[in-house]
Design a binder for these strands. Structure first.
Length: 587
RNA sequence: GCCGAUGUAGCUCAGCUGAUAGAGCAGUCCCUUCGUAAGGGAAAGGUCGUGGGUUUGAAUCCCUCCAUCGGCUCCA
């Protein structure tokens, strides 16, 4: 497997060189063509260029054509090692390459490797295929902008993304996956299923949930609440606007003040902020009493709206919002309680993800030791916290991967990475250990010897942000929610207006059983209404006509299935109630 | 915020190189009273994202701003 991947990477890497070669052939005669880097990435490759004009979509087709021409020549890739001085001479017209050569020299390299293919030579560590005839299937995907070396203060280059596979079939399958992902895009489905909207008047990144979308959102929240109650969390309510001072103490002000929305009181001219998170407020609930070691852990949770002034270009559907919430909880406990608390949270996260039908793995997010200034708290505390998290993972026999630089600024995290139905990964749940904030707020408890001690704070979220998770679920289920999440669970379709009254009576019976039902009494044909209900992805459709009016049996059509079933009314209602209660999907 | 693209009816889109807009679906009304993915008809619906400019004349060309999309950067 590993070997296969390496081969694929080699092909992709070589294809990126051929792409650069083609760009040079097509554009160099009209002006500047400077080369950045062209590495492989997950699912493909890219190459960055500094060009005399912006690329347009038509260019991709032209470049592909030129690449095909080059590939058909069966050009060989030749590797050479040259000295740094020789390299400087060779790439004297290529400032970005010169910078890279300089970097290599700083790292102590005396020699660098170059690869030549046809009359295109590139500075490159390799590896490459022997000849272009090994490139069997490739495709250029998109044009993008990207900062040189990924650093925001640098100039932006033009990036072309592409991919290559060993066979045309694999490439086709990949293209098919992209198409499927596009069809499930939650922004598209959100509109089609009428779940949420945006308004220019309300503002970017601030979604309005329709009654259907609110149902989905509420169900997600209720479920998280039900799960966290099982392990002792109680919900609290805290204000959306807080004094600046609160965030100065917590450390959020220093780190995030540019990303917080400011509010001012006209009477006192005091500065407030819309809250971007709940943790500082929760410390104040803790701090409202003297706490005994016997009271700990104190576990509180909050679903309040949060506001973050995200940069305009970073907003995207429900995935990245300026107004959102979290199934956020904080546990204040003693050090000897940390492990049990983590295990309990891991337990409910697992339960949730089984329900949602998602695989997951754990990322142990540690701080970047080279950027200590980005974090608060001293080295000893960090080392201790990181060790505690790792041992919890080991003791619970959980598979995990370490990721340096992914920690929160106040402590290390366990992040739960889920895989959706298309195999895409998302970070949702998180459990974080924090020794800093309790100290900053001067939180205390009295231990069994009557001495004051500082509690530990655990920050945790089950699905993270319900809104963002809703976007993941829409795409995961392709809009076909399981019954418990579906905005309309049963659609009743009367055959002609004669049976509307009977349908309404039936609907009331469903409503009494707390089943979300809708009677489609529009003056249209049965076929039309079935089509409408299928497009709305309603789990169950009941066609009500003369036969049903005279009997206790229902004619049930299940979403996505052509064959209809006959089920007695009472049995059907019971079944749905069961599915809703168990949050299961099928009859 | 940065690089690039886009913005026409509720939705999806057409409108070539300048002469004040068109379709399908949805919605409305009428007919039809219907059995599992679109029954028929009619009328209605848009100062072409915003504000400016060029021009005898702008949806169309130029600029500003706003929003969205593809990325980059960021994500407590």
């Amino acid at each position: 497997m590993e070997k296969e991947n390496n081969k694929l990477n080699t092909i992709r890497h070589s294809t990126s060189h051929i792409m650069a070669y083609a760009v040079k052939n097509l554009l160099a005669k009209d002006g500047k063509v400077l080369f950045g880097i062209g590495p492989t990435i997950k699912d493909g490759f890219y190459y960055d260029f500094d060009l005399h004009r912006p690329l347009v979509p038509l260019d991709l087709l032209k470049i592909e054509k030129e690449m095909k021409k080059l590939i058909s020549k069966n050009l060989e890739f030749k590797r050479e090692e040259i000295t740094v001085t020789e390299a400087r001479k060779k790439f004297s017209e290529q400032p970005y390459k010169l910078e890279l050569i300089g970097d290599l020299e700083k790292e102590g390299e005396k020699k660098v490797s170059i690869y030549t293919c046809g009359d295109f030579t590139d500075l490159c560590a390799g590896l490459h295929i022997k000849s272009t005839k090994e490139i069997k299937a490739f495709k250029l995907l998109k044009i993008a902008g990207a900062y040189w070396k990924g650093y925001e203060k640098n100039l932006q280059l033009q990036r072309i993304y592409g991919t290559a596979f060993e066979t045309q079939e694999e490439l086709d399958a990949y293209s098919e996956r992209l198409k499927m992902a596009e069809e499930r895009d939650h922004r598209k489905l959100g509109k089609e299923l009428d779940l949420f909207v945006f308004s220019d008047l309300v503002g970017p990144g601030m979604p309005l949930y329709t009654f259907r979308g609110s149902i989905v959102r509420d169900e997600i929240i209720q479920y998280s609440n039900q799960l966290q109650k099982k392990i002792g969390y109680e919900t609290v309510h805290t204000p959306n606007v807080n004094k600046a001072e609160l965030f100065k103490i917590s450390g959020h002000y220093d780190k995030y003040k540019d990303d917080m929305l400011e509010v001012r009181s006209h009477y006192t001219n005091e500065k407030y902020y819309l809250k971007p998170m709940n943790c500082p407020q929760h410390t104040q609930i803790y701090a409202s009493h003297t706490r005994s070691y016997r009271e700990l852990p104190i576990r509180i949770a909050d679903f309040a709206n949060l506001y973050r002034d995200e940069k305009p270009g970073e907003l995207s559907g429900l995935s990245r919002l300026r107004c959102f919430s979290q199934d956020d909880g904080h546990c204040f406990c003693r050090e000897d309680q940390i492990e049990r608390e983590f295990a309990a949270v891991l337990g409910i996260i697992k339960e949730a993800l089984v329900t949602y039908g998602m695989d997951y793995w754990v990322r142990l997010s540690l701080r970047d030791k080279k950027k200590k200034q980005s974090y608060i708290g001293d080295d000893k505390v960090w080392e201790k916290s990181e060790k505690i998290l790792e041992s919890i993972l080991k003791n619970n026999k959980l598979e995990y991967k370490k990721a340096e630089g992914e920690a929160a600024f106040y402590g290390p995290k366990m992040d739960i990475m889920v895989k959706d139905a298309l195999g895409r990964e998302w970070q949702i749940s998180t459990i974080q250990l924090d020794f800093s904030m309790p100290a900053r707020f001067g939180l205390k408890y009295v231990d069994d010897k009557g001495k004051e001690k500082t509690p530990v704070m655990i920050h945790r979220a089950i699905v993270g942000s319900p809104e963002r998770f809703m976007s993941i679920l829409i795409e995961h289920y392709a809009g076909a929610f399981p019954v418990w999440l579906a905005p309309v669970q049963v659609q009743i379709i009367p055959v002609g207006s004669t049976f509307v009254e009977h349908s309404n009576k039936l609907a009331n019976e469903f409503k009494e059983a707390k089943i979300r039902v809708y009677v489609d009494d529009l003056n249209e044909t049965v076929g039309y209404k079935i089509r409408k209900a299928e497009k709305q992805k309603v789990p169950y459709m009941l066609v009500i006509g003369e036969k049903e009016a005279k009997s206790d049996d229902l004619n049930v059509r299940i979403r996505g299935e052509k064959d209809v079933k006959t089920i007695s009314r009472l049995k059907f209602i019971k079944e749905i109630e069961k599915q809703i209660k168990n949050r299961s999907d099928r009859i």
